[in-house]
Design a protein around this nucleic acid. Structure first.
Lengths: 338, 338
DNA sequence: CGCGCGTCGTTAAACGCTTAACTATCAGGA
DNA sequence: TCCTGATAGTTAAGCGTTTAACGACGCGCG
């Protein structure tokens, strides 16, 4: 591959001049500009980014970090959506995207990730950082690598969705339909800050309606559709009086729907099911799933914009995105019984 | 961030020695090893990858290229799955993943991508390269950047799934059920080699059964679920005698299912629908979708392994992966009528 | 006429690492 | 004793950029 030097030779000038022309740094004549451009053209020269990175200390690469915790990273439709947002912002600005999926153990992220972080290979980081066990951004902060968290990280720049509001809205909706026997399908507490907030939101709404939230039947799934189906079965077998199921993500809600169909339980006539996330398949489920849209795309976009502000030396403000209740057809008033 | 030099100073040796110790190049004593390691430890030293890249000409980064054609890149569940495969192989070997989503115009990929390609920033490329308009790997070949295509690129190292076999299997299955009035939902020809092959497969099977394939009603969708629904409507309104719909991807098949449900057409009793891809939501559709599994995960894995072989200077063999017919519940024999 | 300044271009150092070439030391064999 | 060769470590060049520092030139102005 041709180098700056070869271009310089060909154009009959020094490398410094070529560099100036290419970076549009003042003080070169139109004539030399022409010569240089011509040489660049003929050789098909393109700068070596590694060299540039070394010299400038900037790589134009930002790292996207999806730690590998409860789930294979890319099975979560939200991740995909976030990535889409990040990607859009980056490519708009001519930045490249380095994907990192560190293992996250209690003592911190894995060595591979740390090497990347300290390598000078990325100008900044956008990280899904939302679990209590350990923060992937902690080491970044220690090394002064600009970073934005998607999640609940009060000590960092962050963006997250208003999960409390979302949870509350969801519960208010169910209560408003008239349900009182409500089962909750959640995940193990302490796995994820967002879900903890959603639960808190449910609780707020429940207690505002005079229900004792702690007495509502709850069960812990593992995020997946299959686990949702299983949880629905267990919950309904143990508490046949349940008329509504609030699931803390859409995949588990879809699982619940799946179970209901197999068990011959009509949704929403005999059982209401609501989810959380508004993943794309929620819309086409049978029946279409009532859920909370948490704007994953926007999450990715915002985080990336904030990172760019950081890179531009301006202090970004952390953001909390509002959620929206998406009413479809999987929930209805309970049939009056007994 | 600490540099090699600082480590060397602290350990009281030369940078060359430190470098040797760290890369385990022969000829240093246990004593110096200890000193060096201690210094590394205390300073928290980690190599600057840009410098290393410049010096060695290797970055340990491979580029994953998903050109941006008919669709926003990450909306296709297959892309996600392929990415998962690539990611797994890479992180196993300590490689990092750079994501590139070039715009693909007739005259070739965009400048941003070319810059990346020529930058020396990636050691190799795995590319979804499967469209007739232009190849993203063409410029890679021109620059001698090792690359593997996922798709039909006979001039390159490639891996693709046996779409002809898949299409044929799908059609044989439908014919075997007894259908003769079969509608085909495809995409604009020339958009995608794989789909062209699938169609060829359908045709092979149809003609083996004595059907004139060209006379079967066909319509072109745009990959998406919504377009599938629309196509199903059009096709069925124009050709009410159709008893089965063969869709060239699952999303359009899901759309067809969606339309059928709305229109009150019972699947599979009154209409059989089959898809292609076996995306995860196919399994949970109502009714569960009969489709062809094309092993997207494996596609990503294989391509990456081939790339690593290439990087190891060994000539990889291109691969064609077999497909598998996944029989679920969206297709059944036609009701004998008239 | 001479000085200063704006313009255009060059030289060379620096970024942090790898590695070929080199020096020094020491043990063992002839 | 001397030579050889293995071992241990150093020096310095090189990877391809950027950029600070510097020189040369010409022009306008006092």
């Amino acid at each position: 591959m041709p180098t700056l030097n070869e271009v310089a030779q060909k154009a009959g000038v020094s490398t410094a001049t070529v560099s100036k022309v290419l970076s549009n740094t003042p003080y070169f004549s139109e004539a030399t500009r022409q010569k240089v451009m011509q040489a660049v053209e003929e050789l098909g020269y393109r700068p070596n980014l590694a060299a540039r990175a070394l010299s400038k200390g900037k790589t134009h690469v930002i790292g996207v970090v999806f730690p590998y915790i409860y789930d294979r990273v890319f099975t979560d439709p939200l991740v995909q959506r976030i990535l889409e947002g990040v990607e859009g912002e980056c490519s708009q600005r001519g930045y490249n995207l380095l994907l990192s999926t560190p293992q996250l153990a209690a003592q911190g992220p894995d060595e591979n990730y740390l090497r990347l972080l300290h390598s000078g290979y990325v100008d900044g980081l956008v990280a899904l950082d939302n679990v209590p066990v350990a923060s992937v951004l902690e080491p970044a902060r220690a090394r002064n690598v600009p970073a934005v968290a998607i999640g609940y990280q009060p000590h960092a720049y962050y963006v997250h969705s208003d999960d409390h509001q979302g949870g509350q809205g969801l519960m208010e909706y169910i209560l408003g339909l008239g349900h009182r026997h409500i089962g909750v399908i959640t995940v193990r507490d302490g796995l994820n800050y967002s879900i903890r907030q959603r639960i808190a939101g449910l609780q707020t709404a429940a207690e505002a309606a005079g229900l004792n939230f702690a007495e509502l039947p709850q069960i812990e799934g593992r995020f997946s559709l299959a686990s949702g189906a299983e949880c629905a079965r267990t919950l309904l077998e143990q508490h046949p009086q349940i008329t509504a199921l609030a699931c803390m993500n859409d995949r588990m809600a879809l699982g619940a729907l799946h179970y209901a169909r197999e068990a011959g339980i009509a949704v929403p006539a005999a059982l209401s099911v609501v989810g959380y996330d508004d993943i794309s398949s929620a819309q086409h489920a049978v029946p279409p799933l009532t859920t909370i849209n948490q704007q994953a795309l926007q999450l990715g976009r915002m985080a990336t914009r904030m990172l760019f502000e950081l890179l531009d030396q301006t202090e970004p403000a952390s953001v909390v995105l509002p959620t929206e209740l998406i009413i479809r057809a999987s929930a209805a008033p309970p049939v009056v019984q007994k």
